[in-house]
Simulated assay, not measured.
Amino acid sequence: MEWTRGHIIGHGATAAVSAATSRKSGEIIAVKSAELQRSKALQREAEILSGLDCPYIIGFRGCDVTREGDTAVFNLKMEYAPGGTVADAARRLGGVDGPTARRYTCQIVKGLKYLHSKGIVHCDLKGSNILICDGGVKIADLGCAKAAGAAAIGGTPMYMAPEVARGEDQGFPSDVWSLGCTLIQMSTGKSPWPDAAAATVRRIAFSGEVPEFPEAVSELCKDFLSKCLRVVPAERWTATELLRHPFLEESESPTSVLDRSVWAGGESCEDSVHMDGEYSSESAMQRMKELGKISGDEKWEWGHSWITVREVNFVNSEKWTQELLTLDNFQFL
């Protein structure tokens, strides 16, 4: 697919996400790009995403290598999500409404069930990795994903399950814990833990506590959270079991205002890495300009204000937790 790069809509530690246009079909896509020599994680993500076919996982549109000036760049092409991230929506609104949170949660759980049926652990589920599309939400950013049982740990500490924060294990139950944290974030617009500090990592790992449930949510929602946020991994419900929870009944309601009028258009450009390229399609570029004009300040966050730990082999609990605590630029959403 020949394509034209547009404005930057998100950032990561080593990658940037651009809106783009297919020169042949005119389809708007998203392109996640990294320098080829630093693209190991992105290539792995492309490999995983290429083997998936689920309406609740962001769609794969191919990958290629381009020359950006003197630099070789690896590009992962994906379905474009015009609504930005759930984290942005929740932060702006102070939390999405109950029916919308329920419907979005149902779609996320269906996506998790599919991933787990394929033997894949997402490892970094959170609101900034859930994208809003016309029909609801889709799970994105599989850069930390791994095969179940693989000896690696990754993710964002504030959404890590206790066993992950201790460096013991990261499996399907860990994704379920992160789901509970994401539902809290979705419902409140805030982090699942009140303090973004190193002491919180120790608290997650060793205190036996769970995040505080929001007071404003329904009792069914609180019960659902209680099935996700259990300290002992084996006691957490599976994605299949969660789909039968009463909280998710009637969750496939008509599309909410979040999916259409509020989010019509696209994402705006943010100050970021500029990638030069050969852009020959005037009409495609015009479409990208128009997309930028009608958008608000929505964006794909992709980790621009947090640290993702990737490709870390299992270590002893004390050493792993200490590594999390001593990251120089340790930040949280």
Rank of each mutant, 00 (worst) to 15 (best):
P82H: 13
S226I: 00
G303N: 07
L333I: 03
L52S: 10
G12Y: 08
G111S: 05
T200G: 03
G266M: 09
L49I: 11
L183E: 03
R310C: 05
D175V: 04
A148F: 00
C144W: 06
L324N: 02
K118T: 06
H116I: 04
R102K: 09
G62A: 13
D297I: 14
I132T: 09
L179S: 03
A145V: 07
E252G: 09
S261N: 12
W306A: 09
L258I: 09
R203V: 01
K113Y: 03
G266W: 12
I108Y: 00
E235L: 04
S178L: 02
G189I: 07
A151Y: 04
E168S: 00
S191P: 02
Q331A: 11
F224Q: 02
E79Q: 12
A90I: 05
S33A: 14
C133W: 09
A89M: 14
R44E: 07
R310Y: 06
R230D: 00
S317D: 06
V315Q: 12
S226N: 07
I28T: 15
A234E: 01
A196F: 08
Y114D: 10
G155N: 02
S295F: 12
N75T: 13
H304K: 05
I132H: 05
N329Q: 10
I307T: 10
G12E: 05
V273N: 09
D169T: 05
S25T: 15
T66D: 12
E168R: 00
W237K: 04
E323A: 13
D259T: 13
P173I: 01
D169M: 02
S117P: 03
D97I: 12
R38V: 06
D175C: 03
I108H: 05
Y56T: 08
E35K: 15
E278W: 14
K222Q: 13
D97F: 11
E45H: 14
V17G: 10
S261M: 11
I307S: 08
S218H: 07
H11V: 12
R236M: 00
E250N: 15
G111M: 07
S283D: 15
V262L: 15
S50P: 08
Y114Q: 11
S207G: 08
P157M: 01
L229F: 04
G6M: 12
I130L: 02
V217T: 09
W3D: 13
L76F: 11
R310L: 05
K293V: 15
T156H: 03
K299T: 15
T14V: 10
T105M: 01
V96M: 13
V73F: 10
R287H: 13
A198C: 05
E249C: 12
M160S: 01
I57T: 08
G98F: 04
R67N: 14
G135L: 06
S22M: 10
D276R: 10
A101G: 10
Q322H: 10
A198D: 07
T326E: 14
G10S: 08
S280N: 15
E282H: 13
L243M: 14
E249N: 07
T321K: 02
A151F: 02
T188C: 04
G277M: 09
M285H: 08
F224S: 00
A46N: 13
A216Y: 06
A145I: 03
S128L: 01
K126Q: 04
L225S: 02
V164G: 00
